[in-house]
Design a protein around this nucleic acid. Structure first.
Lengths: 160, 160
DNA sequence: GTAACTGTAACTATATTGGTTACAGACGAT
DNA sequence: ATCGTCTGTAACCAATATAGTTACAGTTAC
């Protein structure tokens, strides 16, 4: 549904920074991990900085790091920072005002969509960047194991 | 986030048909209520028919009606019929295979996104087209009341 | 002062959605 | 049987959103 991978990339970026601990990362390093252009990353970092999730420093030896502890950043914070609000949209153009359903469907739909949004936000609020790092660690361990035996680990974007 | 109003329109369409009871509706009537082009509606009706939510008949006196009772059609059915699956997408291009975070973030993200999708589906499964009609009825009553006093009811697409 | 960064503008490419015209095929009415 | 009225569907255009790219001004450590 969502044609955007902004949320996924933003979680990736903040996870990298949590992984790097206190060390600040350059946009080029992040871009290398995400496999995209450094400008794309810097644009996103600006949005994350506006939401006070990261702090960046200009100049030589500059870069970005988390603005606070990974345990204090939820996926909901990230979602709000980089995605436009609402899982679904209403009609582009308002429906007919001379049809009893058309006039009122928006009210009912808004209630429904609010329920959906609340459900999503509850899930995202319950997961922190620290949690993501914790979930990541065993994967990394097993990846390393497989590497030793020569197996290839390829990420498949099953959702796209 | 979602740049698509397909879900909202589909709910609108099926609600109209539930409202019309057994009477079958022509794509032009539906388009009038949704305020769009009949072809847009017919395209959507084809998708809804493929998911066995509506049945259509060609020829003169043709049209479409619900395939089963409104109480037996959930918003989840509609969601599956007209939207691509998954609230969020993963990265467009797979991340770096030489970065421990990049290699494994997809696995962790998939788990998270599955949790999100499950939450959305739980909400949508709990609401039927019949429920939407029930929620709509008091609105229609109050709209009629306001109409009598000359007040204007205008639908505002606050989410767009 | 210089080299190495970030912040940001400007442009392009690509994909999705929605809107429109056009027309073949189905089917009831006469 | 044919005629009018529908659906199903292809083909095309417009609008929008995202991502990728180049370029450059401003900042900072050395």
């Amino acid at each position: 549904m969502s044609t955007s991978s902004r949320f996924a990339v933003a979680v990736h970026v903040l996870t990298l920074m949590a992984w790097a601990d206190e060390e600040s990362l350059k946009s080029e390093q992040v871009a290398e991990s995400v496999q995209t252009n450094p400008v794309v990353i810097r644009r996103m970092l600006c949005e994350l900085a506006e939401s006070n999730l990261v702090v960046s420093q200009t100049g030589a030896t500059g870069g970005s790091r988390l603005a606070r502890d990974p345990s204090q950043i939820t996926l909901l914070d990230i979602y709000h920072a980089v995605e436009s609000p609402g899982v679904f949209s209403l009609h582009r153009h308002p429906p007919s005002r001379s049809c009893p359903v058309g006039v009122n469907i928006g009210t009912v739909l808004n209630d429904v969509l609010d329920e959906v949004d609340s459900a999503v936000e509850t899930v995202l609020q319950s997961i922190t960047v620290k949690d993501v790092v914790s979930r990541l660690r065993p994967c990394v361990a097993s990846t390393n194991g497989k590497r030793k035996t020569g197996a290839r680990v390829q990420m498949v974007s099953a959702r796209n």
